[in-house]
C-alpha cells in the first residue's frame, strides 16, 4: 500500500483501548487542519486522505453543555450528570460526561475541563475552573 491509499490511523478498538487502558486519547489531524477523535478513513470536512494519527491532549473548554436528568441507560446510577462538547486546545472537539453536576448553574460555556480516566466506557471530564472569572 502506498501513502495515498493507506487506511488512515487507528481502529476503533485501538481508540477504546487507548483511552481505557493506556491513558492515551487517539485522534487524527487532517491536511486541512480538521482535528477529531471520530473514526474515519478520509477527512469528513475536505474529503482528502491525508489524515495523520495524533494523540489528543484531552484539555479544552466547554463549547456546549447540558445537564441530563433523564440519563442514558448505562448512566442510570449517575444522573444527573453533565454531557459536554469540548473544544480542544489544539483545535477540534470531543465530547464526554462530567459526574456530579446537578444543574446547568454549576457549569458554563468556556469552562476549562480535562479528560480523566474513568471506571467505565466513554470519555469522562473534570472541571478545572469553578467560575467564569477564573476561566480567564
Amino acid at each position: 500500500m502506498n501513502e495515498e491509499t493507506a487506511p488512515a490511523v487507528h481502529s476503533i478498538a485501538a481508540y477504546v483501548h487507548g483511552y481505557a487502558e493506556e491513558k492515551r486519547l487517539l485522534g487524527f489531524r487532517s491536511g486541512c487542519g480538521f482535528v477529531s477523535a471520530t473514526w474515519g478513513l478520509l477527512c469528513p470536512r475536505c474529503g482528502k486522505r491525508d489524515l495523520k494519527e495524533v494523540t489528543l491532549s484531552g484539555r479544552g473548554r466547554v463549547a456546549a453543555l447540558t445537564v441530563q436528568t433523564v440519563p442514558a441507560e448505562e448512566f442510570v446510577n449517575d444522573a444527573p450528570y453533565a454531557y459536554v462538547v469540548v473544544e480542544l486546545e489544539e483545535g477540534g472537539r470531543i465530547t464526554g460526561w462530567i459526574p456530579g453536576v446537578r444543574g446547568p448553574e454549576e457549569l458554563f460555556i468556556g469552562a476549562a475541563v480535562a479528560w480523566v480516566s474513568s471506571y467505565r466506557p466513554g470519555l469522562q471530564f473534570e472541571l478545572r475552573s469553578s467560575s467564569p472569572e477564573d476561566a480567564g
Binding site: 476503533i12 481508540y15 477504546v16 477523535a37 471520530t38 473514526w39 456546549a64 453543555l65 447540558t66 441530563q68 433523564v70 440519563p71 442514558a72 448505562e74 448512566f75 450528570y81 454531557y83 459536554v84 462538547v85 470531543i94 465530547t95 464526554g96 460526561w97 446547568p104 460555556i109 466506557p121 466513554g122 470519555l123
Partner: peptide, 19 residues
C-alpha cells in the same frame, strides 16, 4: 462510540444545540 457512550441521550444532543 463517540456520542452515546460518552453519556449523550437524544434530548441531551439537541440540548447542546439549544445551549
Amino acid at each position: 462510540t463517540f456520542e452515546s457512550q460518552n453519556g449523550a441521550t437524544f434530548p441531551g444532543l439537541y440540548a447542546t444545540i439549544a445551549n
